[in-house]
Design a protein around this nucleic acid. Structure first.
Lengths: 213, 213
DNA sequence: AAAAGTACTTGCCCTATGTCAAGAAATCAA
DNA sequence: TTGATTTCTTGACATAGGGCAAGTACTTTT
């Protein structure tokens, strides 16, 4: 379970078998009406393709993020550590999504989150400096970035709102509906802390649902 | 309590008396190392100064946001309405902060949030189209925007995390410490729903704290 | 000054979820 | 294969916070 990216991936974890087909190209991550094909090529060239084995840490608490990752296949978990030592899952990044610690990357502060692969992953990595250059050279890329951030902001706002307005069971059912593959691939304790409850409670909620809501 | 901005503000509400001195200039909102004085002048010219009376709706659920507001004095509350009809306070925007519905403004979708002044306010309003022009014409403005979004994203992530890791009392004490003026100026029910609890519970938490933690 | 409305508190009881501990089942290590 | 580890479930009990209703104080309206 090293900190560095490793290049072999013979053995897929029994838990986290790959179901979905991988994203074909890094250009798929940068869909935006203003981005011309030439722009996309330039953007793509700024990424480095990597295969990461299960358990790889992409970023650890206290470090400064200096890159982000477009996830072609596999899954990444991000988590923060409580003062009392427990880790709280803050999110899952799946195939087709971008694993990034915005605060550390763009504000230059040490991160309070950890990012770790839950399975073998294929990713495209782009360094901050390359991002920065693209941002300044390609206006449409900056627009893409603004939209991506808007979308991300919306999701976190919704998450906070839902922690208030929905019960734990509601949140689990929503997750089940919106990301069913996640429930198969991720250990219950991570899902529980992501939902804001204990694994004990989630187990009971599952039982209740199994009996027929 | 109209939808449009109004220009008189003789009578300050008894509840929400102004304590803090207003922000002097709109340029204070756009501090960024790369922004030159000339840029700031251009940015400032894109804003319109307005005085809004207490109760003014800046944005209502279902509308499309087409501007945002830099708050020079006063306070704005944003809230979402539950399916069951209750309104949940999603945030307070105070002097020196920006009242904006990012999702609606930048993704062009109808907003699910409402924005309403809690007191008479002095604001600088900037239309989306002007923002967009500045974003494309002034690279440093785009950088400022990216940083602002990063900061906002961080705060919403923290909010979601704290809803999970902290008790309601913890959250109240934090608010008391970080924004004491807010507790004086805002009715308890709005603070309660912002904290994710009922006004009844917040009242009890206050009592408990008053007795000596 | 009376009436109506709003803000806040308090009591009683209830539910969702947490804590702790034990045990079964699956997985991993050797 | 065997033992160790992890995952998940379940029970008994505790606690935070919600729902409802009443009551007080303050504010606004008339």
């Amino acid at each position: 379970m090293g900190t560095s990216a490793e290049l072999h991936s013979e053995k897929a974890g029994t838990y986290h078998s790959e179901v979905l087909s991988p994203v074909r190209s890094v250009e798929d991550f940068y869909q935006h009406p203003e981005l011309a094909p030439g722009d996309l090529e330039q953007i793509a060239r700024a990424h480095e393709y990597q295969q990461l084995s299960k358990g790889t840490m992409l970023l650890q608490e206290g470090q400064h993020a200096n890159a982000y990752y477009c996830i072609g296949s596999g899954m990444v978990r991000s988590f923060a550590t409580n003062p009392s030592g427990k880790d709280i899952t803050t999110g899952f990044t799946c195939r087709g999504q971008i694993a990034i610690e915005v605060a550390s990357l763009f504000l230059g502060v040490p991160t309070k989150e950890n990012f770790q692969t839950l399975s073998d992953c294929q990713v495209w990595k782009i360094p901050l400096i390359s991002f920065h250059n693209l941002f300044n050279q390609i206006p449409a890329f900056a627009s893409w970035g603004r939209e991506w951030m808007s979308q991300a902001l919306l999701m976190y706002k919704l998450r906070a709102l839902r922690m208030i307005t929905e019960t734990a069971k509601d949140r689990y059912l929503r997750l089940q509906q919106e990301q069913p593959e996640l429930l198969q691939q991720v250990p219950l304790k991570y899902i529980a802390s992501f939902l804001g409850i204990t694994d004990t409670s989630l187990s009971r909620i599952r039982k209740e649902i199994a009996r027929g809501n």
